[in-house]
C-alpha cells in the first residue's frame, strides 16, 4: 500500500508534470468566425498599426465637418450647384492602406451629395482617366494636369487628399502617427481653396 500511496502516485505526478511541461512547449489554439454585431467592442479594438474603419471615419468626419463650415462651401452655394469630383486620396504612409483610402472616395461623395449645393461627378465610370490619375499620383503629382483632368471630367472643383505618417519604432513599441489632409482645388486656377488636417495615432505598446 505504501507503494501505491507514495511510489506510484509520485511517479504519476512526475509523468503528469512532464506532460504538462510538453504541453506548455507546444500550444493549441482554436479559432472561430465572429460577427461585429455579436461581439461587443470588436470594431472598437485596434488590431494593428494600420488604419481601420473607425480611424478613417474619424479623420474623414473631422475634415468634412471643417469643410462644411468653410468659405468654399459658401462659395458653392452662390454658384448654382457647381460640378465637383472627388479624386483618389494619396497614400504617403508606411502602411498598405490604398484600398481603405479608395473606399473613402465614396464616403466623401456621399457627404457632398447629402449637403446638396453641388453636382457630384463620379470617376467610377471613367476608369481610363482614373488609372491615368493614379499613375500620375504614383509618379509624382503634376499640378498642371489638374486643369486637363477637370475639362475631361467636366468638374469645376476637385476634392482630394493625402495621408502621411510619422512612423517610429523604439524598443518594444511602434507608433504610427497619421495625418490626413483634405483639399478643395479650383480646377481652372489650381488654387487650393480649402485645406484641413486631422490626426490619428496608432501604436503597439507593451502592457
Amino acid at each position: 500500500m505504501t507503494c501505491k500511496v507514495l511510489g506510484v502516485s509520485r511517479l504519476w505526478i512526475a509523468a503528469l508534470a512532464l506532460s504538462a511541461l510538453s504541453g506548455s512547449v507546444g500550444c493549441a489554439h482554436s479559432t472561430r468566425a465572429v460577427r461585429g454585431d455579436d461581439e461587443p467592442g470588436l470594431d472598437y479594438a485596434a488590431m494593428s498599426t494600420g488604419l481601420d474603419r473607425r480611424d478613417l471615419q474619424r479623420m474623414l468626419n473631422e475634415n468634412m465637418e471643417r469643410m462644411r463650415t468653410s468659405a468654399v462651401v459658401q462659395r458653392w452655394a452662390s454658384e448654382n450647384r457647381p460640378a465637383v469630383s472627388v479624386l483618389p486620396i494619396k497614400n504617403e504612409t508606411s502602411e498598405h492602406i490604398d484600398s481603405s483610402l479608395q473606399a473613402l472616395i465614396s464616403d466623401v461623395e456621399t457627404k457632398l451629395i447629402e449637403w446638396g449645393g453641388v453636382r457630384v461627378i463620379s470617376l467610377e465610370n471613367q476608369q481610363d482617366l482614373l488609372a491615368q490619375i493614379r499613375k500620375q499620383y504614383s509618379e509624382g503629382f503634376d499640378p498642371s494636369q489638374v486643369a486637363r483632368w477637370g475639362k475631361q471630367i467636366g468638374a469645376r472643383y476637385f476634392v482630394t487628399g493625402k495621408v502621411y505618417t510619422t512612423d517610429e519604432r523604439v524598443g518594444d513599441q511602434r507608433r504610427v502617427q497619421y495625418y490626413m489632409f483634405m483639399q478643395v482645388i479650383d480646377v481652372e486656377t489650381g488654387e487650393i481653396l480649402f485645406q484641413n488636417k486631422s490626426n490619428v495615432t496608432k501604436a503597439i505598446v507593451r502592457d
Binding site: 497614400n91 508606411s94 504614383s138 517610429e168 519604432r169 511602434r174
Partner: peptide
C-alpha cells in the same frame, strides 16, 4: 509597375533601418 506599393515598403524599410541603426 506599382510605385505606390513600393514606396510603402521603402518607408517600412527606413523605419526598420533606423531601428537597427539605433539598437
Amino acid at each position: 509597375d506599382d510605385l505606390n506599393g513600393a514606396r510603402v515598403e521603402a518607408r517600412r524599410l527606413a523605419v526598420m533601418q533606423q531601428f537597427i541603426k539605433e539598437n
